[in-house]
Design a protein around this nucleic acid. Structure first.
Length: 270
DNA sequence: CCTGGCCCCTGCAAGC
DNA sequence: TGCTTGCAGGGGCCAG
């Protein structure tokens, strides 16, 4: 489900309800999601005030003085702030209750999501060594160009590599390459500096625009307030196989790259 | 080091 | 209608 814009939309949705609020209890309805849920979540989080809700890559970080809860939504995860007495539904795996009478409820049918813990001053090993945030100046086309030299993997796979830049998933990789006019199958090492400069610009523009639209709802993504993401209407490539390119009318094609469906216009992208 | 493939899991839609 | 198959927004891990 969620790429960076959807995770950021989720962050903005939950933050006003839980920042500055005290956790009164944690309910784990199963001991694991993708990984076992560390004991610190149940032992240290209750009683803490959530000082801030941050995002790093596709992780949400609930910061407290005792440590940070890391939440990842995987493919199908969803977070909502609900009244504490809201009935439990299937796949409602975790509740974090607050002194406001609300609970932050984590729902995730496929359980590719995660709930982890990071002690104060530490960086979780999964966050070590990952690339820059795409919407900061640490990410630019020059970086992509330098890292890509000699690489034979498709440029789309390269763009989705978390060591290169974080947060760009399957939808926005296709969209950014469309906007930059680059064929997703092209070897990363054979894309020019000039084209990487353009690609980085488009990544930034598209992610910012998608956040502005509340993300992309393909089937089930809803923001914590229940709103769908409206960027779906602005997709040029993703999910449009066989449909006419919105720019030139050529049918959009789909090809599998890195075990992921990749959509492109054979006329606009070279 | 880099690359491609596999796997985790459930739900849904399409095809027979 | 019901069964089977394939696919889905992520990403860690492994062998080559």
């Amino acid at each position: 489900m969620p790429e960076l814009p959807e995770v950021e939309t989720t962050r903005r949705g939950i933050a006003p309800h839980i920042e500055g609020r005290r956790v009164t209890g944690v309910v784990l309805r199963r001991p694991d999601l993708r990984w076992p849920i560390p004991r610190e979540v149940a032992e240290l989080l209750p009683g803490q005030v959530v000082d801030s809700v941050d995002r790093r890559a596709k992780y949400l970080l609930l910061n407290t003085s005792a440590g940070t809860a890391l939440l990842h939504l995987g493919m199908s995860g969803m977070l909502r702030v609900l009244p504490a007495d809201t009935p439990i539904a299937k796949h409602d795996h975790v509740d974090i209750a607050f002194d406001t009478g609300s609970v932050l409820r984590f729902t995730d049918p496929r359980r590719f999501g995660a709930l982890l813990w990071q002690m104060p001053g530490e960086t979780h090993e999964l966050l070590e060594g990952i690339g820059p945030e795409p919407l900061t100046d640490d990410f630019d086309g020059e970086r992509m160009y330098q890292l890509s030299r000699g690489r034979t993997a498709p440029v789309k796979t390269f763009l989705m590599d978390n060591a290169v830049v974080v947060g760009v998933g399957n939808i926005y990789a296709s969209e950014a390459l469309f906007a930059a006019g680059i064929d997703p199958r092209r070897a990363a090492g054979k894309v020019s500096r000039e084209r990487y400069l353009r690609l980085a610009q488009e990544v930034k523009r598209i992610l910012a625009l998608a956040i502005n639209r509340g993300g992309t709802t393909l089937r089930d993504f809803l923001a914590p307030d229940g709103a769908p993401g409206y960027f779906f209407q602005e997709l040029f490539a993703y999910g449009r196989a066989g449909e006419a390119c919105k720019v030139c009318g050529t049918p959009i094609r789909v090809v599998t790259l890195g075990q992921r469906a990749s959509f492109y216009c054979p006329h606009c992208q070279r």
